[in-house]
């Protein structure tokens, strides 16, 4: 693989502007109430921003498959941690183990 890929300056500045705009968007959306969608919207915007940083500032778009796999693996494992922890807290009492009634 070529070890050096120079990303054009205009991409850097384009990404920078996009990040600033998205920061504004996320603040703006936060002032409005979308009910259950508040958190997903905020996280989606943050995820988009993070992807821009990872792909362009961190050159992952131009990197080897291996680097891309590593970048993906870190976040994938984070998701494993969150999903498998939350599945407990979200399902407490789903089977009537701890409900104290009748």
């Amino acid at each position: 693989m070529s070890s050096t890929h120079t990303v054009p300056l205009k991409i850097y500045f384009g990404v920078f502007i996009a990040l600033c705009v998205l920061t504004g968007v996320t603040v703006w959306t936060a002032k409005h109430d979308y009910g259950a969608l508040n958190t997903p919207v905020a996280l989606a915007i943050a995820g988009l921003k993070a992807s821009l940083v990872i792909l362009f500032f961190m050159h992952v778009k131009y990197s080897s498959k291996l680097t891309q796999l590593f970048a993906f693996a870190g976040f994938f494992w984070l998701v494993l941690l969150l999903v498998f922890t939350l599945q407990d807290f979200m399902t407490r009492g789903m089977l009537p183990t701890y409900v104290f009634k009748h």
Binding site: G35, G93, Y98, V99, F100, K101, H102
Partner: peptide, 19 residues
């Protein structure tokens, strides 16, 4: 009320149980 559901200020519902 025990064993019934209650509506919270946040709009969520909660089962009125021991917890």
């Amino acid at each position: 009320k025990f064993g019934t559901e209650a509506l919270l200020t946040s709009g969520a519902k909660v089962m009125i149980d021991a917890e």
